[in-house]
């Protein structure tokens, strides 16, 4: 198939950037979307033009490196799919595709389709962990975890930190990402001692990084490649509100 691409080109963080049109011919329906861009890039190199910079690594949908907007959809049109796992058989000859980087105040563009998602790491730093130094752990089976709880925690823990939720949200909120980590840890017995501090400080970190507020559009859930549920946002908000209310109380909240 032949495609017309409009790709966001931006030389560096300070550059203004613009859309540039490219024609890609004879694309195989079996190629992945990133392989289609590889083919384009080899053509650009052949012409002495700079290839389109995009982030990618595992190309198996698990590392979370890749991601950009295709015609306004984060990771493109297929549900539950990162752009590296999106194959060209879902497009047709003559399609015109607009390819843009994640758009968010908290994700500055570094070059072309590459953005800086360091804000996600800083949210994790605020409390996305259980404090247990190497060697401190008790025997693993001393802490039983009911299977439904473990399964639910795993549903949340699957987040790959790609940033699609932020890019698709009209408010640029990071609530799905943050709530996935808060819920993963706050559901588990091991996460209880730090539960309320975690919710409080991770939500505050999210605000500090310049992400918007959640107003329940649920666009994030629709584009999440791991199909993480917005139920976790409600769970995070509940822990956050409890934590906020108890601030200044002498007796800490019971978990």
């Amino acid at each position: 198939m032949n495609l017309t691409l409009h790709v966001w080109r931006q030389k560096g963080p300070a550059d203004e950037g613009r859309m540039v049109q490219y024609e890609v011919k004879d694309v195989s329906e079996h190629a992945s979307f990133l392989e289609m861009l590889d083919v384009l890039n080899q053509q650009l190199i052949g012409r002495g033009e700079e290839p389109v910079a995009f982030e990618h690594d595992c190309r198996e949908g698990i590392c979370g490196s890749c991601g950009f907007m295709i015609n306004g959809d984060a990771h493109g049109p297929m549900p539950g799919t990162t752009v590296c796992q999106l194959h060209m058989r879902h497009f047709k000859d003559g399609d015109v595709l607009h390819i843009e980087p994640w758009r968010s105040r908290a994700f500055p563009v570094l070059k072309d389709l590459v953005v800086d998602r360091g804000a996600f790491d800083r949210i994790i730093q605020a409390g996305g962990f259980i404090s247990v130094a190497t060697g401190e752990a008790p025997e693993a089976n001393l802490i039983p975890v009911p299977k439904p709880v473990a399964d639910r925690a795993m549903d949340a823990a699957q987040c790959i930190g790609c940033g699609a939720c932020v890019a698709q949200c009209p408010n640029g909120a990071a609530s799905l990402f943050t709530s996935a980590k808060v819920s993963h840890l706050n559901l588990l017995p091991q996460g209880q001692p730090e539960r309320f501090d975690r919710a409080l400080s991770m939500v505050e970190a999210m605000d500090r990084e310049g992400f918007g507020y959640c107003s329940n559009h649920a666009e994030c859930e629709a584009v999440c490649p791991k199909e993480i549920s917005i139920d976790f946002i409600a769970r995070m908000n509940r822990d956050y509100l409890k934590a906020k209310a108890q601030r200044g109380m002498k007796t800490p909240l019971q978990t």
Binding site: F129, I130, V132, T134, G135, E136, A137, P138, E139, A140, N141, I143, P144, V145, P146, K147, A150, D151, A153, M154, A157, H184, L185, L188, Q190, G191
Partner: peptide, 22 residues
């Protein structure tokens, strides 16, 4: 042996049996 203890304590959501054990 120590690795599994450490990871479980960190909250790695290992698969569980119905009794809650690993």
């Amino acid at each position: 042996l120590n690795i599994i203890d450490q990871c479980a304590a960190q909250g790695v959501p290992f698969a569980r049996e119905y009794g809650g054990l690993l």
